[in-house]
Every structure is written in structure tokens, then in C-alpha cells.
């Protein structure tokens, strides 16, 4: 019986805001917030009897899925725009750090700021160490040359 109810609901093509919110387990205010942020379109029909369709339901489910995968609302809204504008694979942001002569390190950019700061500090230390070792080996090379 319950399964049939669910099936009927998912076959339904029009929902009120309250019904749509209940369908995806979100408060109505959150759905309005998403619309206000441009994450999803407003109702198909405005005013009394405003309704939402299958695309709204699917978009909300997609937002939930993307959030579960760690994306923020701002990232989701940008992603939505990019997907609409061009069917390109999702880009990934990476920082490239030239930490020493001939050495570059790549770090994923979408990490927490505190983690990025830790990584940058560690890289700074590594860069200094590499520079120091290069200088000292150059210096000891010179002395060896003198001995010869």
C-alpha cells in the first residue's frame, strides 16, 4: 500500500510547495531559499494554486545528491550554470606551487582554508629545505673542487 502511494506520488506531475518540500524531506523555507538563490526555477504557475513539476523535484533531488557529495550551494549554483551553458566535464580547481627550482607541487583547491594553509606552510618548509640542500651541495662541490 505504502509502495503504491510512493509510486503514485512520483508519478504525480504537479505539486504545491508544501507537497514538493515533503516529497524531498526539506522544509518549505529551504525550497524557497533555493529558488531565491537561483538554484532552481520558481513555480510553473504563479499565484493561488502555484505548482511545481517533475523538473523541480529532480532538481531538488540533484541538489541533495550534490550536497551529500560535499558541494556547497554556491558551487551547485555555478555548476548548474556551467552545465547549462556547455556540456563540458566538471572542471576541477588545482593550485600549482613552484616551490623550488624545477619542482612544482599540485594541490586540490577545494579544501578547507585551514587545511590549505597547513599544506602551504609544509610546502614552504619543503621549498626552503630543497633550496638549502641545493645551496649546501653547490658549496661543498666548490670546496671539493678546491681540494682537487
Amino acid at each position: 500500500m505504502a509502495e503504491r502511494d510512493t509510486e503514485m506520488k512520483s508519478e504525480q506531475r504537479e505539486w504545491s510547495l508544501a507537497e514538493l518540500a515533503e516529497e524531498v524531506g526539506l522544509p518549505a523555507r529551504t525550497v524557497r531559499f533555493y529558488i531565491g538563490r537561483g538554484l532552481m526555477p520558481g513555480p510553473e504557475k504563479a499565484g493561488r494554486g502555484a505548482s511545481y513539476g517533475q523538473e523541480h523535484l529532480e532538481r531538488l533531488q540533484e541538489i541533495q545528491r550534490l550536497q551529500a557529495n560535499g558541494l556547497t550551494l554556491a558551487e551547485i549554483s555555478m555548476r548548474g550554470e556551467e552545465v547549462e551553458s556547455a556540456s563540458l566535464p566538471e572542471p576541477e580547481a588545482w593550485w600549482t606551487y613552484p616551490i623550488a627550482d624545477g619542482v612544482e607541487v599540485r594541490v586540490r583547491a577545494d579544501q578547507a582554508p585551514w587545511r590549505l594553509r597547513q599544506i602551504r606552510r609544509a610546502l614552504a618548509g619543503l621549498g626552503q629545505k630543497l633550496d638549502k640542500e641545493r645551496d649546501s651541495s653547490a658549496g661543498s662541490g666548490g670546496r671539493q673542487g678546491g681540494k682537487r
Binding site: F33, I35, G47, R48, L116
Partner: peptide, 27 residues
């Protein structure tokens, strides 16, 4: 009052606390 009209949701922004660098939380 117009039933069914969808209000546009807006969130009131606040200022970053004085003397706290944005970088401390937002890179």
C-alpha cells in the same frame, strides 16, 4: 493579501567581526 504568491527569500548579510581576517575562515 494575495494567497499563493511566492515571496523571494533574502538573507541579511552581516559584517565580518572587527579584527578577524577574512582569511581566518574564508581563503
Amino acid at each position: 493579501d494575495k494567497p499563493g504568491e511566492l515571496p523571494m527569500t533574502k538573507v541579511v548579510p552581516v559584517g565580518m567581526p572587527q579584527d578577524v581576517e577574512m582569511d581566518a575562515y574564508f581563503d
